[in-house]
Design a binder for these strands. Structure first.
Length: 301
DNA sequence: AACCCATGCAACCGCGGTGGA
DNA sequence: TTCCACCGCGGTTGCATGGGT
């Protein structure tokens, strides 16, 4: 962590230009930006920086907001489900962190990139050294889509999808208070309570875990829900997420049955048993077929 | 206690894309 | 068409921290 600039708060003028601050953000700066974003919303980032009274460049403000202050951010350790999804998406997308992040609600590209570089990369490397599995690579290029990781994690991936609605910080009956969160960022003793508030933390994948029927899960098998379970899941999701987009993507499925292949748009590709690589198939089409995760309740356009 | 090293992560940098003048 | 400002992304840096010696 970088030290906050000792000149923090001082407006330094040089050649009629305000010297912009760099380095770590102070709590005061965070509060300014947070308040401005919540009251005045979007716009040109350089204007935001100016209007919020920050001696920061717009770029820095944008980064701070996206990676740290956004109320919809889910902080804390990655769940095994998220890990699995990251590994799988990385196998498809390579180092396209923003695209991976777009499918992990509440996570930022920076966070995922750091997690990959610091943890997953090493773990996969170790696995490679202890097994002959071809699925582990630290390459920035997409790997074969037919990977042993996928069968291990597909249940988790789907579970994550099911649970992604609860990633919202605004949930029915539990209104999220961004200022509470902001305060808690500097009050570590209170952090766990904050992070689990509103469906975060432990409850992120705890609520609906086990809805899917593991026995029916396989690379080419259906993720089937019984009508009762499906309705229960659906109702819970609607109630918790308050997010129509969600219902239009993942689970507005009247057949109550869908395939992983459908979900990831792979049915005509790797599931046929060929080792297709990025660039050999239509990435755009593939990504179009990957369901969007629910738009976050507090979105930055 | 002091030092070294590995790790995690916030933030910066540079580049390419885009849209408006 | 060119220029410029802005945005978004991926790679990289550098600091704090914790563990080992």
């Amino acid at each position: 962590m970088r030290k906050p600039d000792p000149n923090m708060g001082k407006v330094r003028v040089n050649n009629n230009k305000i010297k912009l601050r760099k380095g770590l953000w102070s709590p005061e700066e965070d509060e300014k930006l947070m308040k401005y974003m919540l009251t005045s919303g979007q716009g040109c980032w350089s204007n935001i920086a100016r209007n919020a009274g920050l001696q920061r460049c717009g770029k820095s403000c944008r980064l701070r907001w996206i990676n740290y202050l956004r109320p919809d951010l889910k902080r804390g350790a990655f769940s095994p489900q998220e890990e699995g999804l990251i590994i799988h998406l990385h196998s498809i997308l390579g180092n396209r962190w923003s695209q991976i992040a777009a499918r992990l609600p509440g996570r930022t590209d920076n966070e995922i990139k750091n997690f990959w570089n610091s943890t997953l990369k090493k773990r996969l490397k170790n696995n490679t050294s202890t097994s002959s599995s071809p699925n582990n690579s630290d390459s920035s290029e997409p790997r074969d889509v037919v990977g042993g990781i996928f069968p291990v994690y597909e249940h988790d991936i789907m579970t994550l999808c099911m649970n992604s609605s609860s990633s919202s910080m605004v949930t029915a009956g539990n209104q999220f208070d961004p200022f509470h969160l902001l305060n808690n960022r500097y009050n570590m003793t209170d952090a766990p309570a904050c992070l689990t508030q509103g469906g975060m933390g432990d409850t992120f994948y705890g609520d609906y875990y086990g809805i899917l029927e593991p026995g029916k899960i396989g690379l080419e098998g259906d993720f089937s829900l019984s009508p009762l379970e499906s309705n229960a899941a659906h109702n819970s999701i609607d109630m918790k997420s308050n997010n129509n987009h969600y219902n239009n993507t993942c689970f507005n499925n009247t057949d109550q049955s869908f395939k992983v292949a459908d979900m990831f748009g792979l049915e005509n590709h790797h599931l046929q048993g060929e080792n297709l690589r990025m660039g050999e198939w239509d990435l755009e089409r593939l990504m179009d077929n990957i369901p969007s995760f629910p738009l976050l309740d507090f979105q930055v356009e």
